[in-house]
Nucleic acid binder design. Structure first.
Lengths: 144, 144
DNA sequence: CTTAAATTGGATAAAAACATCCGATTTATA
DNA sequence: TATAAATCGGATGTTTTTATCCAATTTAAG
C-alpha cells in the first residue's frame, strides 16, 4: 500500500507529533532509533518533508526536526503520503490502465474506486493532532 | 496496491474468463496482445497460475491457456492476488511493524484494519464469473 | 515421421526501490 | 573563535521487481 519510505515518513511524523515541544528539536538519531528505521534513508525522507514545509529542520548543535504545534491540527496522513508516494494511490487505475475512467472503466473500476475513496477518507481523517501529547496519554508503538 | 505481475495476472484471468470456450485454448501471444502486457513476463505469471491449478496450460500446436468453465464461479480476485502477491496486503501492518496486532496496535491499526477488510471483501466478492461471456455482454476494457 | 507452433525453465539484463557513505555546511556553546 | 553536533546533498552500492532472451520440450497436424 505504502512504500517503505512512506511508512518511515508516517512513523517519523507521528513520533514528532508526540515529541515536538515548542521550540525544541528531535535529532535524526533520536527519531530513527525510536521508529526503527535506517538512519540515512530516513534522513532523505525527512528532508523531503521539510522541503514541503510539513516540518522544520535546524542544522547544528541541538538541531534536528520538529513540527510547529499550530500545524498539528492541519496535517493529516494524506499530506504525508502525497509528498512521499505521490498521488498514484488515489488516482491510478487498479489494473494499471492509463485510459481507465468513469466513462471508459476497466472491469473492476467501480469496486476499486470505492476502496480508493475509503483510503482517501481514512488518510484525510487521521490528523497528527490525534497523536499529539495532549490527545494521547499512552505510549505509541512505533518500533518493530 | 498490486504489483505489476499481479495486475497482469488479473487482466489475463479476466480475459480468459471471457474467452475460455470449453476445450479451446488462448495462446500467450493472444493474451498479452489483448491485455497490453509484456509477453515473456506474462508467461511467468501464467505459469504460476497454472501451477496453482487456477488455469490449465497446454504445450504445442493449438496450445495455450484456459479456465475450466466450472471453475469460473469458484475463482475470485483474492485467489489470484494471493498466488501472485502473497497475503501481505491482507495481514501486514500498515506501517510495516512486525509486532503490530490487536493487543499491541500501531497508531493507525484500527483505521488500516478496516481498509484491509474492505479490500478483502471486495476481492472475495469479485468472481471471475462476473466477467464470463454469459454475464458480460459488453466488451471488457483491458488495454492501455 | 517431420515440422511448425506453442509452453517451460533457466539465465541474464534493466529499472526501481531501498540503503549507505562521506564531505560540505550550519549552528550553539564553551 | 574553535569545536563538536547536527543536517544537507551528492555519489555510490545493494536488493527487489520488472523485463527479455533463448534453448528444451511438448503437441497437433500434415
Amino acid at each position: 500500500m505504502f512504500s517503505k519510505a512512506c511508512k518511515y515518513g508516517i512513523k517519523a511524523m507521528i513520533y514528532l507529533a508526540l515529541h515536538s515541544a515548542e521550540g525544541s528539536y528531535c535529532s535524526l538519531t533520536d527519531i530513527s532509533a525510536n521508529i526503527d528505521s535506517p538512519l540515512a534513508f530516513t534522513s532523505k525522507v525527512l528532508q523531503q518533508l521539510a522541503k514541503n514545509k510539513l516540518i522544520v529542520s535546524l542544522k547544528g548543535v541541538n538541531g534536528g526536526f520538529r513540527i510547529e504545534t499550530k500545524k498539528l491540527s492541519k496535517i493529516n496522513l494524506l499530506h504525508i503520503v502525497k509528498i512521499i508516494d505521490g498521488e498514484s494511490l488515489l488516482y491510478d487505475c487498479g489494473l494499471g490502465l492509463k485510459m481507465c475512467s468513469d466513462t471508459k472503466p476497466c472491469p473492476i473500476h467501480k469496486q476499486y474506486s470505492l476502496i480508493r475513496e475509503e483510503i482517501r477518507k481514512m488518510l484525510e481523517n487521521t490528523s497528527l493532532i490525534d497523536f499529539s501529547a495532549n490527545k494521547k496519554k499512552q505510549v505509541l508503538i512505533l518500533l518493530r
